[in-house]
Amino acid sequence: MRVHGWLLFICAVDTLILGLVIWFNTLDEITLISKAWDDVGPLVQTLLQEKFDCCGYLSHMQPMFDPDETCLDALVSSEAIGCRDPIIAFLDEFYKTIFTLLFGVVALDVVMFCFAAMVLEHRKVVRRWKRIDAKNAQTI
């Protein structure tokens, strides 16, 4: 039971660290998404433009949009929004769900740790009373 308690403690700390890392990434996601947009290349940018119904990153001109079914030409794409805001909104919802679940798991780990501590304490009290009863049986 003690090993179980220690494993719960380690699991809670690891899950808390993972949740905090994801939460801190949400604070800097505009920079991370900007770098990712530059790194992924035109094929993935086109897929993102189609998925989020947008053109370009900030606007259709910054950086220049990739022509596709959503952004046919400059005139059509000038009326479309940039992809940054829809992508950030999608990631915010995703990140919120993930780190909320992780913090929920930490809460469950803490409750389970408390239950394990109560079981250990109860077993200690039962052993104490058994020793007292054994002593009383010998003296009678």
Rank of each mutant, 00 (worst) to 15 (best):
K35E: 15
G41A: 06
Q62K: 14
I33T: 15
L47Y: 07
G56R: 02
I98E: 00
A80S: 13
P67S: 12
Q62N: 14
V76L: 05
P42M: 06
G41H: 09
D92W: 11
L58E: 12
I33S: 11
T97P: 01
D53N: 13
S78L: 01
L58R: 10
C71H: 05
G82H: 02
P42W: 02
C71N: 05
H60F: 12
G82T: 01
M64G: 13
D39G: 13
S59D: 14
F52H: 07
W37A: 05
A74M: 12
L72H: 10
V76W: 03
E69A: 15
T70F: 07
S59I: 06
V40R: 07
M61F: 09
Y57Q: 07
P67C: 09
A36M: 12
V76M: 09
P63K: 04
E69D: 11
Y57M: 06
E79G: 13
M61S: 15
G41D: 08
V40D: 02
E93P: 03
C83H: 04
G41W: 13
E79R: 15
I81P: 10
I88W: 02
L58S: 12
Y57L: 07
I87C: 00
D38Y: 13
P63A: 04
Q45G: 04
C83T: 01
L91R: 07
F94G: 03
P86G: 00
C54D: 07
E50N: 14
L48H: 06
C55L: 07
D85C: 03
K96L: 13
Y95C: 11
T97C: 03
L48E: 14
T97A: 05
F90D: 08
K96Q: 13
L43V: 15
M61D: 09
E69M: 11
M61P: 01
D92H: 15
D39I: 08
M61E: 12
R84W: 05
C54P: 15
P86W: 00
D73Q: 08
F94R: 14
S77G: 01
P86S: 01
L43P: 01
V44W: 04
V44E: 10
D53W: 09
T46I: 10
C71T: 02
G56F: 04
V40G: 01
